[in-house]
Nucleic acid binder design. Sequence first.
DNA 1: GTCCAGGTAAGAT
DNA 2: ATCTTACATGGA
Length: 292
Amino acid sequence: MDDFTPFSLENTLQCGQLFRWKKNDGSWTGIVAERVIKIRQKANVLEFEGANASFIKGYFRLDDDLQLIASCINRDHLMERALHRFPGLRIARQDPWECLISYICATYKNIPAIKSMISELSRRFGQKILFEGKSHFSFPTPDSLANATVNDLSSCGLGFRARAVREAAKHVRTGKVDFDSLKKASCKTAKSELLCLPGVGNKVADCTLLFSLEKLSAFPVDIWMKRVIKDHYSQNFDALFDKSLTEGNSLSTKAYERISEFAQGYFGKFAGYAQQYLFHYYRSLRNKACKS
DNA sequence: GTCCAGGTAAGAT
DNA sequence: ATCTTACATGGA
């Protein structure tokens, strides 16, 4: 398969949006729905097993016109650097159920810990899949998490998130939230539905919208976006608001909405892409600083 | 051992 | 309405 440029498997899998992929000597192995996929990129050729080309194309959103998206969000020097530093980074098309639970778990946790939680949840409550002689585990169904005890969930490292995960699973199982209809609904309507779920606030809702419900304008605001806004976009806000963006104190609902709405107006209909580039770029700067 | 993490929700003002 | 604080756990 070779009609997908620009695309970087590395940048797409490493940017922090996905939690189920591992790299081993040049190729990546990941669990997607009920499959194990092994994939690698050589220049402009993708080699993979475990799925067909159309699945890969859909999963990595290779039909998005990334050139167009990049030109839309490239509004300033910072974005230009981010786009240049991580070319070919694409938003993946995640399964909404897995995405929702993953980002409920992501609350107030670092990425290695999130990966460990998801892996453990899958090992305990998912289905075993054999691939190249090794056991892998699919993400648990809504049923299996709804039936789990809070204690069992907690022992996967979920901590206080266990209750929210279990309750959210119940809502999905009963069809109280229906992801297919949320895909068709407007961003605003879909978000208000998601916000009814336990453990889901503005940020988790926006991640679910962006990464799994086709809402590419959704702009999740986490601690990294707060830092980016404070460091590079504060001139778009009043001084008092900027001052409230200090490290340590969490974002109020009001502040969240001000930032997210600013970003959607500023970056446009692909603001979610802008968010992911900024997220990955800003984290990479900090990680570099830590190593030196 | 300390710090902090892709925030949320309950309680206080 | 809006602001403040507790929160379980584990990786860095």
